[in-house]
Design a binder for these strands. Structure first.
Ligand SMILES: [Mn+2]
Ligand SMILES: [Mn+2]
Ligand SMILES: [Zn+2]
Ligand SMILES: [Zn+2]
Lengths: 138, 138
DNA sequence: TTAAACCGTGCAACGGAAGTGCATTTATCG
DNA sequence: CGATAAATGCACTTCCGTTGCACGGTTTAA
């Protein structure tokens, strides 16, 4: 728990009770979470607080936002080495068509693509949809 | 104009006046369009009609839906050879951070990626964000 | 040819999710 | 302690996508 407090402080985010709980919640999940997920997990807390917590976490590089094509923003903790406050950590994401869960594949970077003349890339998002490890039964 | 009628009929979509107009509108645009764009272009038509027209077009493989990360669904006509009713035509899309326009890069296919064991890919979406040809000035 | 069935269109309303303004509580610091 | 700033809570809004239902024209079959 003191761990989390330090992590937050290192990112210059004040470690309030709520923030620590949210961080803990996300750390225990291995999948990306939506605002609604957190809302359900912490029924007593107000949605706005959770919303702004995620925004703060995102600004400070604690979590990154994930667009998995569901039109519902997901969030996941950044890996220790990640510095996506500065530049996007271009790993890909996988969305399961069966269980509807989204995971970071942090080891799998988005391949470089050649663009037509005049196009300048600044960011990229690659989402693979299919059947996840759990659902495929391997 | 007769061209469009035939195109629609070939895809087993009845060529109503509205549908022909929408098709024409999309054919003239070189960029992906949102429902709101069409709505603005055809102020007299009802939003629902336009919405359902796009859905019909999509089901029949006349257009494909594009998720460019803006959380606003875009649509673009399918290329002549495209058969994305059956399998996804995996070209990438480019979204300009400056003019906010999204284009299909139909010549640029999404590169194959290796997934961890147990993961099965069924579909993929790759969006590059940056500065487009028009906005970069060459 | 005429009635029935079907399909396209329009109107109204709903729902989820993101976002904002402002009051209130809680923490920080002199 | 009081002053100040930050965090939280509540209410409300907006935007987009979506659906139900009714009306009217078109196709189809008796
Ligand atoms: Mn990720
Ligand atoms: Mn496209
Ligand atoms: Zn799954
Ligand atoms: Zn541009």
């Amino acid at each position: 728990m003191k761990e989390i407090e330090k992590t937050l402080e290192n990112k210059s985010v004040r470690p309030t009770a709520m923030r620590i709980l949210i961080y803990k919640y996300m750390a225990e999940k291995e999948i990306a979470v939506a605002l609604t997920d957190i809302e359900n997990a912490f029924a007593k807390a107000d949605r706005t607080t959770l919303y702004r917590t995620l925004k703060t976490f995102e600004e400070k590089g604690i979590v990154h936002q994930i667009d998995d094509g569901t039109n519902i923003s997901k969030y996941a903790l950044c890996e220790p080495g990640c510095n996506c406050e500065i530049e996007q950590d271009l790993h890909l994401h996988f969305h399961c068509n069966n269980c509807d869960e989204t995971v970071c594949l942090t080891e799998h970077k988005i391949p470089q693509v050649n663009l037509p003349d005049g196009y300048v890339a600044e960011d990229a998002n690659l989402v693979i949809k299919g059947i996840c490890e759990k659902c495929s039964g391997r």
